[in-house]
Design a protein around this nucleic acid. Structure first.
Length: 157
DNA sequence: GCCAACGTTGGC
DNA sequence: GCCAACGTTGGC
């Protein structure tokens, strides 16, 4: 299958692009939403993803990372002491999955949510659709190219 | 299977 | 901190 593109949200207070750069590679654990889970399960090594900072002063795209593992069961779901523990996820039949991501690079600038919302070309982009709270979403090849084109433009004043 | 109550997300 | 939007849970 061809390479796929994604966008993943993280709160920088929890885990930021700088954290990813420091650790190089990170298992994307704690996803507890079925739709997001299904996207994680369909990822393949080499897929590229935008790193998005949510719930912060200037929410937006801040970097690029790459899928670095096959999807595997999220071990946190089995750990009673973990806040992502889910008693309904059985190790024999795991409910939650994750992949590992490796750091690729920061974007040259933060491509802010406000800017993306303003962009008529991105009407169909799931991120800017009203009420969307998915933390993992697909990005089309065309959107990927367009978004990285924005990186080199100066943000609107 | 319906739906109200509740919890979470995330922009502002 | 507020609150709108949405997902999940659980009683019936």
């Amino acid at each position: 299958m061809a390479k796929q593109y994604w966008l993943l949200k993280s709160e920088p207070e929890e885990f930021s692009i700088d954290d990813l750069k420091r650790v190089k590679k990170e298992p994307w654990d704690g996803v507890r939403n079925y739709q997001a889970r299904n996207y994680l399960k369909s990822m393949q090594i080499g897929d590229q993803a935008l790193f998005y900072h949510s719930n912060t002063e200037v929410p937006g795209i801040v970097g690029i990372m790459e899928v670095a593992s096959e999807p595997y069961p999220d071990p946190m779901a089995f750990d009673q002491k973990d806040k992502h523990y889910d008693p309904k996820s059985d190790p024999e039949n795991p409910r939650w999955f994750l992949v590992e991501f490796k750091y690729v690079r920061h974007t040259a600038r933060t491509i802010s949510l406000a800017e993306l919302k303003d962009d008529a070309k991105l009407e169909d982009f799931p991120l800017t659709r009203r009420g969307n709270r998915l933390s993992v979403m697909p990005v089309t090849a065309a959107q990927w190219k367009y978004l990285l084109g924005l990186e080199k433009k100066a943000p609107k004043a």
